[in-house]
């Protein structure tokens, strides 16, 4: 008995220790720091209670970052889930008639997912350049006014959201394609016999409900990545102009790594961590409850 217990401990011990050392302990430290005014490099820190949290939710900048993130997510989630679904439906339908083209398009749509975002950001900057970029050249060819895609305060967040959609549609498409392939064809036959043999009726009575679990999963994954938006902001706008594209994770970076305000950055991390935790919990709850059809 004791020997077996020792063996178990020996097997589990190192990994558990690593988890505690490299995950739980740092997370604990972050939670602790969140209640201090610690600055990177400072010798000491003061306990400030909830002041950092009050600043995040109370200050203009903090609320701006939260609101920007929510706006961004509110565009990117439906946008990339919807577009991913549409593309998947198109490619799924095309796969039987034009298999080669379908496979080619699938790869094309997936490219943004596989590409390095920072490299892509450079391309986007060139495309969206106000006087030299293709985007404005096309607009002008259509006699429409060019736009300051990345430096107009009213537009920049939507531009980034557009890029966010472009970036995640391919991934969602692949998930939806897998979901579509898993729908038994007899259900479509059943629906056809029941009177739903084409178009929307068929989509609403079979495809959409059968994609329920996939859709929920895709939504949660997209939401998690939308709330985490950082690379595009950091590489293309640095949160600007005038904080118009400041998001929660960029603010975290800005406060901690540019302003050296580790305590405040830790508070943002804590809020962000809890929000993602809640999202995950929601997912598990919903998956258990609703969409497993049990």
């Amino acid at each position: 008995m004791i020997r077996a217990a020792l063996t178990d401990l020996l097997l589990v011990g190192p990994a558990a220790l690593a988890v505690v050392l490299f995950i739980f302990l740092p997370v604990g430290v972050v939670f602790g720091l969140a209640f201090t005014d610690y600055q990177v490099g400072a010798a000491q820190a003061e306990w400030v209670g909830g002041a950092n949290f009050a600043q995040l939710f109370g200050s203009r900048l903090g609320r701006n970052a939260l609101l920007n993130t929510l706006t961004y997510a509110a565009i990117v989630i439906p946008g990339s889930v919807g577009l991913g679904l549409l593309v998947a439906l198109g490619l799924h339908g095309m796969a039987t008639r034009l298999p080669r083209l379908s496979a080619l398009l699938r790869a094309v749509y997936f490219l943004p997912v596989a590409a390095t975002l920072v490299a892509m950001a450079v391309s986007w900057q060139m495309l969206l350049h106000p006087s030299l970029g293709l985007a404005n050249t096309w607009l002008q060819a259509l006699n429409l006014p060019g736009q300051q895609w990345l430096s107009d305060r009213g537009l920049v967040l939507y531009t980034l959201a557009g890029i966010g959609i472009w970036q995640s549609t391919g991934y969602n498409m692949v998930l939806f394609l897998a979901g579509l392939a898993a729908i038994p064809s007899t259900l479509y036959d059943a629906a056809a016999v029941d009177g739903a043999d084409r178009g929307w009726t068929r989509f609403w009575s079979v495809t959409w409900p059968m994609l329920g679990p996939t859709t929920l999963f895709v939504m949660i994954v997209t939401a998690a990545s939308a709330f985490r938006v950082f690379e595009t902001v950091a590489t293309m706008t640095a949160g600007g102009p005038a904080f118009a594209s400041d998001t929660i994770v960029y603010a975290l970076y800005r406060e901690g790594f540019v302003y050296f305000k580790a305590g405040y950055a830790a508070a943002i991390t804590v809020v962000f961590f809890l929000a993602l935790l809640a999202l995950t919990a929601l997912q598990m709850l919903l998956v258990e409850r609703r969409v497993h059809y049990r």
């Binding site: 038994p184 007899t186 259900l187 036959d189 059943a190 056809a192 016999v193 029941d194 009177g195 739903a196 043999d197 084409r198 009575s205 079979v206 409900p209 059968m210 329920g212 969409v291 059809y293």
Partner: peptide
């Protein structure tokens, strides 16, 4: 004519019930 237009009932071997309903 489509299946829907024929008003023929069909019971599938796998039953093909709508699992979400």
């Amino acid at each position: 004519d489509s299946a829907a237009a024929r008003n023929i009932a069909l019971m599938f071997q796998s039953y093909a019930l709508y699992p979400h309903l």
